[in-house]
Design a protein around this nucleic acid. Structure first.
Length: 222
DNA sequence: GCGACAG
DNA sequence: ATCTTGTCGC
């Protein structure tokens, strides 16, 4: 699929912040996003324990059956330090290469990490949404910014993640008695639809299937 | 000022 | 992210 080249990859913190400030105004939070997506892609990155290599993985699933339609893994090198809030600049360059090698265009992109629920309201999922112009969802495994009450114990229970009075995401229980995931909007999808999609994509495990598959692939090829 | 901070 | 053993539960 085609990915827009809106900027060069920044090498420094100030450059990266400038890119975020420039692109954050382009984010579409109105959605509503696809009602019944046909193809859903998951993206994740795995890191080498011994050097600076990383593997970006994209797995496309048929939404109805969760069957794998296409897989792409691309290896690269870390070119940006881990700075909370600028996490996307580590993974995006190689992730974009992997997406460009996709022969199909997904209807929805599920990202490992945050979208709106981000210190500058522009996490990896928002950034990837702008570059691909696809609806994107951010799914985080741990809390980052904002606060929320613990949702009820049942699958499907959720509570709002708020920060300074504004709602930036939801803690969503995808599996009974299991730690919730943190869902936030990336681009071109509403928060309620994002949660509905995440729930449908995680019928069995805590982590939505597209991300689980991408995670497996990124570790296998490192 | 200090610590905490997606992966 | 990654380094790590056992353990509890389906």
């Amino acid at each position: 699929m085609r990915v827009r080249r809106l900027h060069d990859w920044p090498a420094t913190v100030p450059e990266a912040r400038a890119v975020q400030e420039e692109l954050r105004g382009l984010v579409d939070l109105a959605g509503p996003g696809p009602e019944e997506p046909e193809l859903v892609a998951g993206v994740d990155v795995g890191y080498s324990p011994e050097d600076d290599r990383l593997v970006a993985a994209v797995v496309v699933l048929r939404a109805g059956t969760l069957d794998v339609v296409e897989e792409v893994a691309v290896s690269g090198r870390v070119r940006f330090p881990y700075v909370p809030g600028l996490f996307a600049f580590r993974e995006l360059p190689t992730l974009v290469e992997a997406l460009e090698r996709l022969t199909v265009t997904p209807d929805l992109l599920v990202c490992d990490g945050y979208g709106l629920a981000h210190p500058y309201r522009f996490g990896l999922a928002c950034h990837l949404g702008i570059l691909t112009d696809l609806p994107t969802i951010g799914v985080g495994k741990t809390a980052f910014v904002g606060a929320c009450e613990p949702p009820g114990p049942e699958r499907g229970a959720w509570s709002a993640i708020t920060d300074g009075g504004e709602t930036i995401g939801r803690a969503l229980r995808t599996r009974r008695d299991t730690k919730p995931v943190h869902v936030s909007q990336g681009h071109r999808i509403s928060l309620s639809n994002a949660c509905r999609q995440v729930l449908e994509l995680a019928p069995r495990y805590r982590i939505p299937e597209p991300i689980r598959q991408a995670d497996r692939l990124s570790r296998r090829d490192i």
